[in-house]
């Protein structure tokens, strides 16, 4: 079976590009503001978005773009990774328990102190009862992510694979996401992914 990169998307520095073309740019001053504007640009109604942490918001926006045209219930595996895991939200949560006089641990914050929650959010949004994993590595590990993706496809455990690198820590964020599919114009290979990632 031959595989292609169906769609890919970069989100960083207040801009979103899709397949290398500009899709959205914003003058937002904070990360949450930027994410909210990007959500509005998508013109979807998904109130749960506002309850999510930054990483899940980033995952939701990028998957909305890359899974466009994919039907709910298709066998699309999710393979996400990053470097900081959920540290951005971990820092928030730690603050909520650090003062004995103001000790009110928040369940709605705590639940996002696991990096794979964003995988769950995308699975719920797109009805994906599929293979999913969240890995953490110092940088985007094209070798292992590629081997894992190819395993899922060759073993028949998935028909398509959505791969995401979702880094969020305080004011820094970066998202790179692509859908590996049997359809598309860019032939899929590890080298191709590295080339596109560095664009």
């Amino acid at each position: 079976m031959e595989y292609f990169i169906h769609t890919y998307c970069h989100i960083k520095e207040n801009t979103i590009s899709v397949n290398g073309e500009p899709f959205f740019a914003s003058a937002a001053l904070t990360v949450p503001e930027f994410l909210k504007e990007a959500y509005q640009k998508l013109a979807i109604s998904y109130p749960k978005f506002h309850k999510m942490d930054k990483m899940s918001k980033l995952a939701l926006i990028s998957s909305e773009i890359t899974l466009k045209g994919v039907e709910n219930g298709e066998n699309v595996a999710l393979v996400f990774s990053n470097c900081a895991a959920s540290l951005d939200t971990d820092i928030n949560y730690q603050e909520s328990i650090s003062l004995p006089d103001n000790y009110y641990p928040s369940p709605a914050v705590f639940v996002y102190t696991l990096p794979n929650i964003c995988v769950g959010e995308v699975s719920i949004r797109h009805g994906l009862n599929t293979e999913n994993a969240f890995f953490v590595s110092a940088g985007f590990d094209a070798d292992k992510i590629n081997a894992y993706t190819e395993y899922l496809l060759q073993s028949g455990k998935a028909e398509k694979v959505l791969v995401g690198w979702l880094e969020v820590l305080e004011n820094n964020y970066e998202c790179f996401m692509y859908l590996v599919d049997t359809k598309g114009s860019i032939p899929y290979s590890k080298q191709q992914i590295i080339t596109i990632y560095n664009r």
């Binding site: 009110y104 641990p105 928040s106 369940p107 709605a108 639940v111």
Partner: peptide, 13 residues
Amino acid sequence: SIDALELIVLLDK
């Protein structure tokens, strides 16, 4: 259910 837990925190706080 998470909202319910958060409301419990609100009552306390």
